[in-house]
């Protein structure tokens, strides 16, 4: 299996997983909401191909892509089954149906749906990894919308003061829910990190190989003990923020499809490889969703207000 194939396979898994989710809402198998990663797959696939399985990850509300790409680092591979079960609220889900789409935990992967609030927590995790001398770094994922939250800046300050192994990944998908970045972010994005002394790796790209190279540099810097860094990836979200909240004009939605990370990377694979990836992902997801669907719902025990 080539490297390029593996990268494509992870991106395709994320794409097809998210597409399946959106479809399942209409069947009533999913409740609540979801925030899909469609269009941003190169970020997660590229970053995690440059990370270590022992690294710690704190993700946000848009966490499915991060989780599936992080899982690809482990020997047994990504586990769309337990993620699907979690989203269906099943007892076999990653966190037994308690967390749902935005609140999952598996091995060194954590997510929470509170903008900005996850960054102080990730900072403390980085302190712990440094103190324990594990060699692990912490990757925390934020978006352009998170730049409005004050807790982010408190954390950047602490991480820099304490030279913590923290990589802040800013995925600028140009919209905070429906608010365009021009209406929400003043000044410079990279300047916000530079002000605290964090080196910044920044690129406008949807090419997974470019992301991987850039992430590799940023991760190497952080792992060297030189302190925190920022990785800013300007990307595109193809679908709504969650499900029905996308006021962008059709022309814009059509235009940004030219930056489809799967199309860009597919050019590097043979037709046979593309077919093989599609078949493999399709089988994996069919199995994942059918098993998850037949799993039992959780039952509330007596652990209320423990």
């Amino acid at each position: 299996m080539t490297d390029n194939f593996a990268l494509y396979r992870v991106m395709l898994l994320i794409r097809r997983f998210e597409e399946r989710l959106l479809a399942e809402f209409s069947t009533g198998k999913l409740v609540g909401t979801t925030h899909t990663y469609i269009g941003q797959e190169a970020d997660a696939a590229g970053i995690f191909s440059a990370a270590s399985p022992e690294d710690v990850v704190f993700s946000n509300h848009r966490c499915h892509g991060h989780f599936l790409a992080y899982g690809a680092l482990s020997p047994e591979g990504s586990d769309p089954y337990r993620l699907a079960a979690e989203l269906m609220g099943k007892a076999t889900g990653l966190v037994g149906g308690r967390g749902g789409s935005q609140h999952i935990q598996w091995r060194n992967f954590y997510s929470n749906g509170i903008q900005g609030g996850i960054v102080p927590v990730a900072t403390g995790m980085a302190l712990a990894e440094k103190e324990k001398q594990t060699g692990s770094i912490v990757l925390v994922f934020i978006g352009d919308g998170t730049l409005g939250e004050g807790a982010l800046y408190e954390s950047l300050n602490l991480a820099a003061l304490w030279r913590l192994p923290l990589l802040v990944v800013l995925e600028n998908n140009r919209y905070a829910q429906t608010t365009p970045v021009e209406l929400a972010v003043a000044g410079s994005m990279s300047g916000r990190f530079a002000a605290f002394g964090l080196p910044v790796w920044e690129r406008e790209t949807s090419d997974v190989l470019e992301v991987r190279a850039l992430a590799g540099e940023a991760i190497a810097h952080v792992r060297s003990g030189a302190g925190p860094a920022a990785l800013i990836l300007h990307t595109y979200r193809f679908m709504a923020h969650s499900k029905g909240d996308d006021p962008r004009p059709p022309e814009e939605l059509a235009r940004i499809r030219q930056f489809d990370p799967l199309t860009i990377h597919a050019a590097r694979l043979s037709p046979a490889e593309l077919d093989a990836a599609e078949a493999e992902v399709s089988a994996l997801l069919a199995d994942a969703f059918s098993r998850a669907e037949s799993d039992p719902f959780p039952v509330l025990g007596n652990q209320v207000n423990r």
């Binding site: 710690v56 954590y110 609030g117 960054v119 102080p120 927590v121 990730a122 900072t123 403390g124 995790m125 980085a126 302190l127 712990a128 990894e129 324990k132 004050g150 807790a151 408190e154 954390s155 300050n157 602490l158």
Partner: peptide, 14 residues
Amino acid sequence: AAIVGAAAGMALRG
């Protein structure tokens, strides 16, 4: 906020 958030992260990691 960062003090308590950092404490939570430290606690999560042992």
